[in-house]
Amino acid sequence: MIRVAVLGASGYIGGELLRILLGHPHVEVGAAASARLAGRRVDSAHPNLRSVCDLTFTHPDDLGAHDVLFAAIPHLESMRQAEALLERGRVLIDLTADFRLPDAATFERYYGVPHEARDLLGEFVFGLPETHRKELRDADRISVPGCMATAAILALHPAAEAGLLEPAVSVDARTGSSGSGRSSGLADSHSERSGALRVFAPSGHRHEAEITQETGLDVTMSATGIEAVRGVQVLCRGRLRGPVDEARLRETYRRCYGDEPFTRVVARRRGAYRLPEPKILSGSNFCDVGFVTGPVPGGGTTLHAPRNGEDGQALLVGALDNLVKGGAGNAVQCMNIRFGWPERTGLEFPGLHPI
């Protein structure tokens, strides 16, 4: 049994971490820290935890040392508090963007400020089990990727690793309102968000850097806020190298993800859920990935299929729950790997249908 603490426990990601960790058989939650709600009951912020959690929020200044510290605080805060965080967690699992990019110049380009803990850049393992499992087994510093980045990396990774894609790829991401966090502003209020399809990042979204870093592709990314509360879906468009047919693409994805506990290949010719759909993934740690080449199933826009040795086009799709596989669940999966437990431990919930 290990003792863990969640810093930033009053937020949506913090609440998901507590929900998962409270049912984890190898974990004792020692503290849920929040400066804003210190002294109040945890279930006052997370009513789904009533009768499940009797903890009160601890002030971060009173947070002692733990075996694992999950940092679910605002971006740019982890680098500013890095020394204190490392003292409070023998293993630090950071859910901010602060240590995802090992290059200080790239970080400054995308986040607009110089990095304040440059000496620690490159010391964090990128927390995506499907691509960094070996390094995670011994990692004491882990940086969990962003939700849209996770979906896009997993959608692109098999084709990119097999050399089936030309470098230039566009990523069109859609995300629910919970991705903006609990303290979002007027633009994310119900009256402004309801019924809206808001393109909040027409180009150069910050996750673009993570996707480029992890796939080796030349990625351009846009992002749109949709009316859903939970969920991320990414549509990745690229050109295939040579006449790659759907059978080869399917075999490539199945070979890559066939043994993965939480990444599923969903690419069917018919049915309501023939391609990855975030709605049915709510609350689960699954990421579904799929693809289309040539004619789009069920009609609609036709992709350029390979002819006479030409390159064809592919649409690669990824979907997940932004708060779970896109955040808290992925962090717990990384913890499970680090301590040698089965990766599904504490993460067995399969999602709901209908919802």
Rank of each mutant, 00 (worst) to 15 (best):
R174I: 09
I153E: 09
S177E: 13
L154R: 04
P158Q: 00
L154F: 03
A151N: 01
V171R: 15
A160C: 02
S177F: 12
L164M: 08
R174H: 14
I153M: 13
G176Y: 11
A149N: 10
L165N: 03
S178V: 12
E166Y: 02
A162R: 06
A159Q: 04
P167Y: 08
L164T: 09
L154P: 01
S177T: 15
G176F: 10
T175P: 04
S170M: 06
P167C: 06
A152F: 11
A152K: 11
A152Y: 11
R174T: 13
P158H: 02
E161F: 04
D172K: 15
S177I: 15
R174K: 14
D172W: 14
S178N: 13
L164P: 05
T150K: 13
L154Y: 06
L156Q: 12
S178C: 09
E161N: 10
V169I: 07
A168N: 12
H157L: 10
A162D: 04
E166I: 05
S178Q: 11
A155Q: 06
H157I: 08
H157M: 07
A152C: 08
E161M: 06
R174C: 05
A151E: 05
S170I: 11
A160H: 00
G163P: 01
A168P: 06
A151V: 08
A155R: 04
L165H: 02
A159K: 03
T150I: 10
E166S: 00
A152T: 10
A152M: 11
I153G: 06
G163Y: 03
A155E: 08
L154H: 05
L156K: 13
